[in-house]
Every structure is written in structure tokens, then in C-alpha cells.
Design a binder for these strands. Structure first.
Lengths: 231, 231
DNA sequence: CCGTATAATGAGTGCAACTCAGTTTAAATG
DNA sequence: CATTTAAACTGAGTTGCACTCATTATACGG
């Protein structure tokens, strides 16, 4: 076994990886330009300076190639997000950093994000990368709860849907109107979540006695007051 | 000019419309079964009992046919939503009714909703139907503000993204986990929005005993405690 | 420098969306 | 009713593109 496998750019392993990523680059370019259906494998191969058949040595089919592009995108996003978050900051601050980064990124690379929807039904390998990305949110929340900055007992997965769902729909709205990044979206989202999550009061609506509870209690009082009416 | 154009089912106009909707029915069936890419025009034509070429007399291409299916779906959803909402109820109640209806519907017809994403880039005619649907939310909000039930000055479009974004992502999460409708999602969403939107009123839940009911019970207790003491 | 394995090629194949020349059906006219 | 005219329908044929595979080129060990 040789000592240095990653020094020279002429190892066979490295040549393969270079070819693979050049194909991915070409695919990303053509897919984002023309959309999935509009993109031709021939064009991608030409852009990557390989023969059409070569593409199929690296990816089983067009869908698989798309999965590769999308997976790499979300992996990149995960790295960027971890860099955008201050490790020692409070949970709320970290959430805001993630929200800003997320909204910025998906606006900037809207076409690639849209491609994600085309990848899902077929292969599920690229979903792993999305899961990794989403896990960043969970980590922030769990750390916040652990450090008593956030109240315990709030279902994280539901808040996750609020967080990412709102940001993605907001991004779509902005794109539809040809507007750019709007910080008030992040501010308002955090205010909304903050009310039920980050505030000192650990009383989310879910744990509050409902009117039904009140009614039950009242009825029990009334029944106790009038016990001997019917024997 | 004939007097009755919409009585007999044998007018040429009506035959055309019947054929068109039978093609749409077939397309919806095949698309939801096999997905957009998996669906063959030949299968759709066969299902609708017409020749393949006939499909192209009604729709320019496969994308256009998909737009027809998706557009009709959202139009149906709009009608259903308007039926699900009590016209005289408070704004918060109406929002909850819409949320329940929306979550229920997109869970039940998840495949058709997914098709929506395949339709967007091409034709934008079917987007109109989506816009009509979304407008229901706006109407509720505007009426609420008008009747002073909701505070003025909150950007409606941002709340709309919170509302629909959260519900759609929640639906996806549920589907991913093979879970069914979860009412706590609606409750928590409204609690979240309620904090920043309707803090005057504690959100009344539709099927729960109203404050009037509580009041009646309280009065019955009071009457029992002080039966003979009339001033 | 040869033999073998691995990588790359691109002309060829198959399948499905889309077309159109020909046919059927319905409406209009006298 | 018969006849003309227009509209609706058909399905065999065309086209475009994803995917295959027999052939060729390249790398590498002995």
C-alpha cells in the first residue's frame, strides 16, 4: 500500500472522482438552466466533456443523476449552516442565524431547491442529505431545552414544520413577486415561535385547561351541591 | 336561438364537456396511480374510452393535461372550503375550520397535491385556481380585522405563508411516518398565530362548550347556592 | 513490451409523446 | 329527406430522447 493516496492528482481513484464531480457540475448547470425535463443527457455529457455513455457509468439513469445533484446541494447547505451558527450563542440566536442562512440560501439557489421535489418519489438516498440538514434545527432545540433556555415538552417536530414550512413558502412568495431577501420574515417568524417557545412562561396552550375541563369541574361542583335530590 | 341550452344532455356543447371531463377523470386516476412520468397518454385515452389523438384535441400536451387536473382539484377544494366555514363565526373559528379542512384534504389527496409541483414551471393558468383557494384565507383575515377581532397592521401575506407552509410541511411529515390526521397540529398552529394575531380572545375551539355554556352552568350553580335570597 | 482489467465511446434500440391524412358523425340548408 | 359543409374523431406513423452494448482506448502489473 502506498503512503500518500491524496497527494497527486493523477491517481486513478482521483481521476474517477474528478470525472464524477465534473459530471455533477455539468448536470447541476444544465438542470438549473433548463429544468429536469428540458435537460438532455447529451447536453450534460457534452458540457462535462465526456461521451453520453460515460454518464451511465456513474449514474444508473437521469433520476439517479438528479439525486446526485440534489444530494450534494443539501450536503453543501449543511456545511454552510454549521459555519453560519455561533456555537456558544443562545438557542434563540442560533435559530435566527439558521433562519437567515436558510432563507438566504434557498432564495439564492431557488432552482436547485425546486429540483428537490423532482427527486423524491424515485430514489430516497438523497433524502438522507435533507434529513442531515434538518437535524441542525433539532440539535439547536435540544441544546436549548437542555440548557433550560427553551421549555421542555414542546413537540420539536411540529415546530420544525412551522420553521421550514414558513421559510419555504415565504421564499416562494418572494420569488413570485420578484422580491429579494426580507429580514422581517425571519423576525416575525421568531417572534411567533418565541411566544410559545422561548419565553419565560412555560405554559404553551396545549397544557392549559380547556373549556371542557372547566365544564367538567363545574359540573362536579354542581353535582356535589345537589346530592340528595333524587334518591 | 333555442330557449333551453342546458336541459338535454345531448347538446353538442354538453357532449364536448362530458368528453372533456371524462378525459380529466381518466387523467387524474392514471396520474395519481402511476405518477406523472409513469402515466402514459395511451393508458389515459384507453381509460377515457377515446383515441389517443382525441386527448390532444382537448389539451395541447401532457403538461397541459396535468394543469387541467391540478386546476380542477384546487377549484374543488375552494368550493369545499367555503362549505366548511361557518359564515357568521368569529375569525379565529373560521381560521381553525379552514386549517382542519385544509390539512384533512391534502392528507386525503396527497398524490394530487404532489402533482401540483409538477405543473408549475410550464403553464401558469392552473396557478390561478391555487390563488383563488388561498384568497379564502385572506378574506377571513380581512373580515376579522374589519370587525376588530384581529389587530390591524399585521402583514397578512406573511401569516398566510406561516399558515399554509406549516400545514403542508406537517402533512408531509405525517405521510412520511405513515401517520394520519393529527388535530394537535391545527391547535398548536392556531395557538402560535393567535398569540400574535388575536390575543384579545382566547381561541374558541369549534366543538368545545362555549363561554355561554359555562355561564349557564355557573348561573345554575349560583341559583342553587342562593335559592331563597331574593333582594 | 505484452496481457489483462478497467474505463470510455457513440452508433444503435426502444419507448412514449405528439402529428396528421383520412374517416366518421353531426349540423345546416333547401 | 337528400346534400353540402363543418366539426369531431381516429390510429398508424414520425420524432426525440433516455438508455444499451459491442467495440475501442487506456492504465498497469509482471
Amino acid at each position: 500500500m502506498s503512503a500518500s493516496q491524496s497527494d497527486l492528482p493523477n491517481t486513478s481513484r482521483q481521476r474517477l472522482e474528478a470525472r464524477e464531480s465534473s459530471i455533477l457540475d455539468a448536470a447541476e448547470l444544465v438542470f438549473t438552466r433548463a429544468g429536469f425535463d428540458g435537460a438532455k443527457i447529451a447536453t450534460i455529457a457534452q458540457t462535462a466533456a465526456v461521451a453520453e455513455g460515460t454518464v451511465y457509468l456513474y449514474y444508473r439513469n437521469k433520476q439517479d443523476l438528479l439525486a446526485g445533484v440534489v444530494g450534494r446541494f443539501w450536503a453543501r447547505l449543511t456545511l454552510g449552516a454549521e459555519e453560519a451558527i455561533t456555537p456558544e450563542a443562545s438557542a434563540v440566536t442560533q435559530l435566527e442565524q439558521l433562519a437567515r442562512y436558510h432563507l438566504h440560501s434557498i432564495l439564492e439557489q431557488f432552482e436547485v431547491v425546486s429540483l428537490t421535489y423532482r427527486a423524491r418519489p424515485q430514489q430516497e438516498r438523497d433524502l438522507d442529505q435533507v434529513r442531515d440538514y434538518v437535524r441542525i434545527f433539532d440539535r439547536i432545540m435540544l441544546r436549548g431545552i437542555d440548557r433550560k433556555e427553551l421549555p421542555d415538552g414542546v413537540p420539536i417536530s411540529q415546530l420544525r414544520d412551522v420553521f421550514f414550512g414558513t421559510l419555504e413558502f415565504s421564499a416562494r412568495t418572494l420569488k413570485l413577486r420578484n422580491q429579494s431577501y426580507d429580514h422581517s420574515i425571519v423576525t416575525n417568524l421568531l417572534a411567533l415561535m418565541g411566544q410559545s417557545v422561548a419565553f419565560d412562561e412555560p405554559a404553551p396552550v396545549a397544557s392549559e385547561p380547556s373549556n371542557s375541563d372547566l365544564m367538567r369541574t363545574l359540573e362536579s361542583i354542581r353535582d356535589q351541591l345537589k346530592p340528595a335530590e333524587t334518591d
